[in-house]
Design a protein around this nucleic acid. Structure first.
Length: 227
DNA sequence: CGGAAGATCCACT
DNA sequence: GTGGATCTTCCGA
């Protein structure tokens, strides 16, 4: 991890402090809303980039038809999901993009939270270079999507299984979002999962500019339209 | 061993 | 809004 020394970020030491190991040892749908506002801290080759998580989705393991572990499926790819909570599960999707998950729960539960969007907090120039985009990105261009944020933070399968407590990829305390600012809705891109596609397991900071796609504001239980 | 589909993104119409 | 990129993973034969 890069040393402190940046003069411009305003990030405090407590915001960078790793979340406790016990934080992860719960169901994914309990952990997911508490991940909103947390800092994802990527350190590599003396550089640092930090993103604030603003959108996530919970995947509940064997009983969740949308999960890679649906029905208790256990394969070489998904083995990381079955580990004890507190590690990263990174996989390649569509042969092109990587997705980052936070593994939750005790061993063999295969619970995970997909990180769907971050707001850049530090290291913006590095993220822009990683994304290969122009110097003045619009909101969402850097981290507004699961594949985008992995590219921005240089996350690929070499980080599959790494601890989130210390090292190249850390989940820090950050600036948690107040519960009244959270919204929830159905998960994206899981139409193959039948009824489970409608489960309200997507969580986001309401009306946040860096979200991958909008969620209508409303009471829990009201969803946005859109298939 | 073959084929189909995928927790996505981007360019184009 | 639609379709193409691109390749690993997984399941069935």
């Amino acid at each position: 991890m890069a040393d402190e020394g940046a003069l411009t970020t305003g990030i405090t030491a407590s915001e960078l402090r790793p979340l406790a190991p016990e934080f992860y040892l719960r169901r994914a749908d309990e952990v997911a809303p508490e991940l909103l506002g947390r800092f994802l801290i990527r350190g590599a080759r003396g550089r640092r980039a930090v993103g604030r998580i603003v959108e996530v989705e919970a995947y509940l393991g064997a009983d969740d038809p949308a999960s890679h572990a649906a029905g208790g499926r256990r394969t070489a790819r998904t083995e990381t999901m079955y580990r004890r909570g507190g590690v990263a599960y990174v996989y390649l999707i569509y042969g092109l993009h990587h997705c980052l998950n936070v593994v939750c729960g005790p061993s063999d539960e295969a619970q995970a939270v997909l990180v769907r969007a971050i707001e850049p907090v530090d290291g913006l120039e590095w993220m822009i270079a990683n994304r290969g985009i122009g110097p003045e990105p619009r909101p969402g261009d850097v981290g507004g999507g699961p594949g985008k944020l992995c590219q921005a933070l240089a996350i690929d399968r070499s980080l599959d299984g790494v601890s989130l407590l210390d090292g190249e990829l850390v989940l820090g305390e950050g600036r948690p979002a107040p519960p009244e600012e959270l919204v929830r809705g159905p998960r994206i891109g899981v139409d193959y999962a039948g009824e489970a596609a409608a489960w309200p397991l997507r969580f986001a900071v309401a009306d946040h500019r860096h979200m991958s796609r909008p969620i209508m504001r409303g009471r829990p239980g009201r969803y946005n339209r859109r298939s």
